[in-house]
């Protein structure tokens, strides 16, 4: 393929060389590809920042602090099961209304939970706790969505 030849990824065989020597059209195109490939080289990517490793470690630590049990066992916990049901309902609802398979924003979920808990101090605390659980489960749901597709072994 010419872009490969032009960027030295493919060996220019004597046969190809012979053709290029006698064919103005191909030689011209080859030169254009050489220039295009050189131009593309100008787009450099940065090195990972110093924060990259620190942040990755923190996220891994968080990951390791999570329970090792499979996600099915989460359904055995009543509060979480209820929260997940709400979330799944929302997710399914949004899936069909938006057609994009995206889950609702945290704000939507908070609004739903808050409406079930009147504005008492205890209610607020309970709502907070539930919200915390919900936030924790966003990753989980994300994984469920992804598991079949992204992370599954090819």
């Amino acid at each position: 393929m010419m872009p490969d030849l032009a960027s030295g990824l493919m060996e220019v065989t004597p046969e190809i060389r012979g053709h290029l020597a006698g064919c103005v059209a191909c030689a011209g195109k080859m030169e254009e590809f050489r220039q295009t490939m050189a131009l593309l080289d100008e787009w450099k990517a940065p090195e990972p920042s110093p924060y990259f490793d620190v942040r990755l470690q923190a996220r891994l630590r968080e990951e390791m602090a999570k329970p090792q049990a499979g996600w099915l066992t989460w359904f055995r916990r009543p509060v979480l099961a209820a929260a997940l049901t709400v979330l799944l309902g929302l997710g399914v609802g949004l899936f069909f209304t938006k057609g994009g398979g995206r889950y609702g924003s945290a704000d939507n979920v908070v609004a739903v939970i808050d409406s079930t808990e009147p504005g008492t101090a205890v209610g607020d605390l309970q709502a907070l706790e539930k919200n915390h659980d919900l936030y924790a489960d966003f990753d989980l749901l994300d994984d469920l969505e992804v598991q079949h597709d992204v992370v599954a072994n090819p």
């Binding site: 990259f52 990755l56 891994l60 990951e63 994984d143 598991q147 992370v151």
Partner: peptide, 14 residues
């Protein structure tokens, strides 16, 4: 960077 970290997390998770 965030996305690259996410890749590693998913590798680790699975």
């Amino acid at each position: 960077e965030d996305l690259a970290q996410e890749v590693f997390l998913r590798v680790y998770r699975s």
